[in-house]
Design a protein around this nucleic acid. Structure first.
Lengths: 113, 113
DNA sequence: GTAACCAGCTACTTCAACGTAACCGGAGCC
DNA sequence: GGCTCCGGTTACGTTGAAGTAGCTGGTTAC
């Protein structure tokens, strides 16, 4: 450990920022049960555009969360899968997703008032 | 349950968006051990400006994560504390924070390449 | 021949989040 | 009178993430 998130200089903030990025959570969850192709991801993660998905995937690849495998075939086949690091992220993110799904009604109720 | 985060119409997305907001995670973690005053929060959460903190607190209050108690004294005393709902969010967020603190070096190493 | 599929890329635009700086009113302190 | 503390507010400017639209090039299916 040795890091304190409350400090401005803490590198964990950068990491949290990446995790907080709009689509990272969805990509990780979508790849939970194994690698998927680009188009499959676009279909599965409703609402994401190809451009933004590409950006998200590139960023996650750069952070070592994702492995991109290009089979160099015709027609193109590219698969995206989680690395060990990415898979380890599944655990905390699953907790967050479950919390969101469980408490969403309470929050929507609170907003009504 | 009954919700699927991958659906565009899923309200959990709104919730995830709020959680993903830059400072929500920090506020929740900062209030882990009990209520704090506005100035104390500004000091504890390094890098946050009064304006943005106000916005974050208002939003969290609206979502029922936070309770704002104004003691109507002079000089003003206002305390912010987590509600039961906010406290329940601590559990998944703590997991995320711990993941970030544990794996930050791996990510920074991956970025070097 | 033409139409769709795959995995994107590029240029352009939009918009909300975030940050900066200054200010407020009442109280107390010196 | 002037300064600080408290809990903000307001106006303004910036930025970067996200969205829109159209294109590519090779391949297979109709």
């Amino acid at each position: 450990m040795g890091y304190n998130v409350m400090s401005v200089t803490c590198p964990s903030r950068v990491v949290l920022h990446r995790i907080g990025a709009r689509w990272t959570v969805f990509v990780v969850n979508a790849l939970e049960h194994g690698p998927l192709r680009f188009t499959a991801l676009v279909v599965k993660i409703q609402g994401v555009t190809p451009k933004v998905l590409t950006e998200t995937l590139r960023a996650m690849e750069e952070d070592g969360l994702l492995a991109r495998v290009d089979y160099a075939e015709q027609p193109p086949r590219v698969e995206y899968g989680l690395t060990d690091l990415g898979r380890s992220l599944l655990i905390p993110l699953r907790a967050v997703r479950e919390w969101a799904e469980t408490h969403v009604t309470e929050i929507l109720e609170a907003r009504e008032r």
